[in-house]
Amino acid sequence: MINLDHVSFAYPEQGPSVNDVSFRVEDGEFVAILGANGAGKTTTVRLIDGLIRPTAGKVEINGTDTVTSSVSERARKVGFLFQNPDRQICKNTVREEILFGLQTVRGDEGEEALRARCEEVLKDFGFSGDEEPFSLSRGQRQRVALASILAVEPEILILDEPTTGLDYFECCHIMDRIRRMNEENRVTVIMVCHDMEVVLDYAKRALVMAGGHLLADGPVKEIFRDAALMEKASILAPQMISLSTRLGEGFEDADSPESVADAVLALRKGGARHA
């Protein structure tokens, strides 16, 4: 469980700040944080992991104030996938990279167990283990970064624009894997993401931010249907939601091309009956 209690943060110079933000995330949730550039999304997720400390209020993970322990100690519980995988990858092969992450936080389990875990993860992600990370594509490097974080089996996964710069396949690979972690292992996921179609497809709850404030908090679909809110937060809702909002009656529940097409069909049949 993650709990933010009236959290504020201001950078010493400029930069987006966070202003009196409170919310609570239960175990196993999949939450997206939405907003325009500079709304305070990244600052918020950095506050959650304690990479920066709130200037007011407090952040609790499983009931403990994050200031009482260090970020590196928290790494066993909280995994953080950054936008740029190159800042994380520091070893010459994928195997070493994953092993390094394991040794750092699960060193007490003994070399044997960690090696076994490493091979398991390699197999799961379809890596041979001998690949050189820097000769892989950006999307593949992001998968290496994700693999080495998931290897540790964190309870909470924080993602800061994990799919930026990736093509469609790479994006699906990453997001599908994250969804599996969320559904099968009940890993709590908090994600900052600019691609609203991805948010609609994967996240269940959305927090909307603007100018450092939390504007709204609710189920993804309800949030996207609130046109006034979208306008205020400078967000463009996913296409099918915008479309069904425009179409109105008969399309209230349609949020995918399939369901919109079904609604069209239903209305046509209904129309035929009237005629």
């Binding site: 396949f169 179609e197 296409q239 479309l243 091309p257 919109v260 079904d262």
Partner: peptide, 22 residues
């Protein structure tokens, strides 16, 4: 395109779905 890893906008998928269904 999708087989190559290029996705299409949802509106395009919609026009295709509607073609198939109707």
């Amino acid at each position: 395109l999708e087989a190559l890893g290029v996705n299409c906008p949802r509106v395009t998928t919609l026009s295709r779905a509607v073609s198939v269904k109707t």
